[in-house]
Design a protein around this nucleic acid. Sequence first.
DNA 1: TATTGTTATACTCTATAACTATA
DNA 2: TATAGTTATAGAGTATAACAATA
Lengths: 153, 153
Amino acid sequence: MVTIVRIPNKGGSGTALKPGMLPGLLGYRLRLAQQALFRDFAATVAELSPGRVGILMLIEANPGVTQSRLAQAVSIERSTMVGVLHVLEGRGLVERRRGADRRTNGLWLTAGGRSLVARLKRRIQLHERRVAARLSAEEREQLLGLLEKLTGE
Amino acid sequence: MVTIVRIPNKGGSGTALKPGMLPGLLGYRLRLAQQALFRDFAATVAELSPGRVGILMLIEANPGVTQSRLAQAVSIERSTMVGVLHVLEGRGLVERRRGADRRTNGLWLTAGGRSLVARLKRRIQLHERRVAARLSAEEREQLLGLLEKLTGE
DNA sequence: TATTGTTATACTCTATAACTATA
DNA sequence: TATAGTTATAGAGTATAACAATA
């Protein structure tokens, strides 16, 4: 027996809105694309937001980095970083160690942090393949290149 | 007399961090590009965020649209839209009028809203030209097309 | 004096759940 | 029963200003 699921035109109260000038703006298209990717990322990597995953990856690639340098690298205030690291440390993913310059904290992944990052990396590759499925390999490279150029390297 | 302003290598505490796998991910590049564009947008359009400007433009292009339809169009909850419109109405930009179906509110720009949108449109075109200055006209079109394809129209 | 990490506080944008008035 | 708008509440994610320890 075959069950046919009919998806109702939910909220489809007639026609779509006229979009005005929005679709021609880079910022608008960028925002839509980012929202779409964010949804897929969240469905793939339930435990952490893209920004937090990025922070773990930066600590992994730069063991011993200080809080301020890391904050600067991801463009948030160092006061904001305090809370972020408090959460990541509380979840047993990151360790702070006092530096030779005793004003600083060096950051390292714990064993748990390293194994989580390893698992997430694999899932993020799946996510990447899925979102890029609408593009050819060349188009994906082209898009990465154009975004890099737009942002200024 | 000529004053030479020497810009200190602010926060340049040595070398940049190793970025790991991040630069090869579409989501990461998209986020960086969006952040860069957001900064430029905020410097150009000080009075409203990109999302709020988009809402004004959608009301302009769709006079009489209901709150729920508008919320759906910009992918926020209708409960969230209530507060957004409360602010825009408080600033004299938007007007709510009770619809024929008396459960609904139709939305219109006020005269002030229309003139603000007209001014912002001009400034947004300048912003668009500035951010796209790193790309050729063809590359800009290519980028818009790839983003549209990635997002799924 | 300058910098690092920290705290207290607040702002923006968003969601969920429950309510009301209408349909 | 179902929908549109509303309210109360909460949670991310962020910033600014002031402070102690250290350089």
